[in-house]
Design a protein around this nucleic acid. Structure first.
Lengths: 200, 200
DNA sequence: CATATTTTAGATCATATGATCCAAAACATA
DNA sequence: TATGTTTTGGATCATATGATCTAAAATATG
């Protein structure tokens, strides 16, 4: 029983993600979302709740399709150094390949969130921390295998890679120049005694 | 002739900066600005123009009082290494000392700007580039003085410091932990063979 | 003191926005 | 086929928002 849904959940969430990604949460109106998702406001409200709930859902959808998969994929690389370099390479190529300069929805959202919304901040933080943890796991493995020189502090190196990646994602939105993004990544890898990124 | 202004331009711009800094451009309404600035909408419009013009003016005011002065101050340090370390130290202390977790207005704005506003993007880019250029000048001087090892590429090192600083400012808003911010900076300095930051 | 000029205060306009309501539509199940 | 349940479309509500208008207020200058 019950009328079946006409919309494809993946497709409408893709559309919502695109709007939030391009314009940010505040600058995206519910009517604009409805048009992009090709749904009425009532259908959106019925399926996802209010704007804030839709945003949260869109973030999850985005992360499932990008960051989480990317970490899992590169974690399986033959060596820790290759995992780190491959992750950076893919992040840069995604940044440069996006003609809309949208950067990273997770990073964009982390800067838009205010102190008045601790739930959202905690959620974003937990997700961001998976990046830092990924770098730390790779570096720890590299230390054991001898790829990472003994003089390098693994925790600080992970923090450096993490902060530099965030910076690259900021620049992806405002100044997406290959020489700049690749230079930052090259500098980070070289500083850890690691071989350069693979070619794109 | 003409009625004199009742407001203090510095004070009202400070108030406007605080609102934009805390909440972002889109999430700040003109009425809220009027209340914070203790001016009427008409007075604001008369003195600064529309919301966008006020934002631009507020950005200038913010930059005059923070970034530009900070670069000039640290550029005068006794050594290039001290200039870089001192700049990072001050950026981190400002981040951690702000109970409101506002991060950096310039970085926040860089992520909020959309492709539809190329003028604002160009302005933000020009200002961001002064940071990159500061690092590059310091590193080039350090190379000449021998503080920077010959094996390090000055351009890439500048890009790394730049991107890492942006990342630190992102984290200042969403996850302002001393161990994290200082760890990233320590990692960056260590990677360049530079001595650690001065104590706070 | 009179005048010209700018600022200020409050009201207001047209629109945008988030959210919701209601009735019609659609379909699985009995 | 009849029933019950969910979705859908369109309208609408209350409020928020950016911007502007008008008239009163204030003061330097002649």
């Amino acid at each position: 029983m019950a009328r079946p849904r006409k919309f494809d959940e993946t497709a409408v969430l893709d559309a919502a993600v695109d709007r939030f990604w391009t314009q940010g949460y505040e600058a995206t109106s519910t009517r604009e979302l409805a048009e992009s998702m090709q749904m009425t406001l009532a259908s959106i409200h019925n399926a996802f709740g209010d704007k804030r709930a839709l945003f949260r859902r869109s973030l999850e959808h985005y992360l499932d399709g990008s960051l989480r998969a990317r970490i899992a994929r590169h974690e399986a690389a033959p060596s820790p150094a290759a995992a780190i370099a491959g992750f950076l390479r893919e992040s840069i190529e995604r940044s440069l390949g996006d003609g809309c300069r949208r950067g990273c929805l997770l990073v964009n959202s982390a800067l838009e969130v205010t102190q008045a919304d601790p739930d959202m901040r905690d959620f974003l933080n937990a997700e961001l921390t998976t990046i830092e943890d990924f770098f730390r796991r790779c570096l720890a493995k590299g230390r054991q295998s001898g790829e990472i020189p003994a003089g390098i502090d693994v925790d600080d190196a992970a923090r450096l890679l993490f902060s530099s990646l965030l910076g690259i994602r900021v620049l992806a939105r405002v100044r997406p120049e290959r020489s700049l993004l690749e230079g930052a990544a090259r500098g980070a890898l070289a500083s850890l005694g690691l071989p350069p990124m693979p070619d794109s």
